[in-house]
Amino acid sequence: MKIAVCVKQVPDSWAEKKLRDGDSLLDRDSVEAVLNELDEYAIEEALQITEAQGGGEVVIVTMGPERAGEAVRKALSMGADSGIHLVDASLAGSDAAGTSYALAKLLEGRGFDLIMFGSESTDARMSVVPSMVAERLGLPQLTFANKVEVSGGTVTIDRVGDYGIETISAATPAVLGMIERSNEPRYPSFKGIMAAKKKPVETVSAADAGIDAGAVGTSGSWSQVNSFAARPPKAAGVVVQDEGAGGVAIAEFLDAQKVL
């Protein structure tokens, strides 16, 4: 089974994120960048699927600037086999529509049985790219999966839906999205880190992937940020030490706020 895992490099969750004044894009240079932690569950699941089948191939796919290559290396050090890195100046500033278009172009025709995703990127927090790629490639969508079973050419998942758990089946090729409860991502071993340095990563330009430059980047985006502002600072709250009447103090506060 040949599996693609789409991963994104994002600012560290704990870093203070800001938009840039000039173009309203996320200021990625000022913060430490990491592999989107929610994508690690997709990587782990892909590795488990190929391990269970006693073979196969896990290919890490990313679209992002030069340094997004670090995220690919991290995934390779966990055990994935190779990487594909789409990097091109024209892609900077792509929105979800542009990103999904570019990823779909990059993925199509490469013979993947499964195209895997995390549940969301921790910076954009949209959870839309997997569905958009499925729509563009005309593939079945098995997302928010908590449990996965692959047997023959059929994939079955437990989807954690809005109102309960749904069991969903589809034939491959399919888009498969994992949630964070599904497994425990492994840590790269020292051996894994050393091995990752020698694994092949194919660098692809927008032109190589047949991407129409007009459909990506800031100018190809279908949505625009008009303005942004730091949230008006909230008046500092009151914190009191409980000396026996802490519960009553909260009730008084709620009463004063007219919540009761």
Binding site: V128, V129, W222
Partner: peptide, 21 residues
Amino acid sequence: PEGKEVAARLAVRTNSGIITD
């Protein structure tokens, strides 16, 4: 989560921009 996915596919089908949340 499902609402956002429906919106995502609709955006692609109708060549429309999407804003979430």
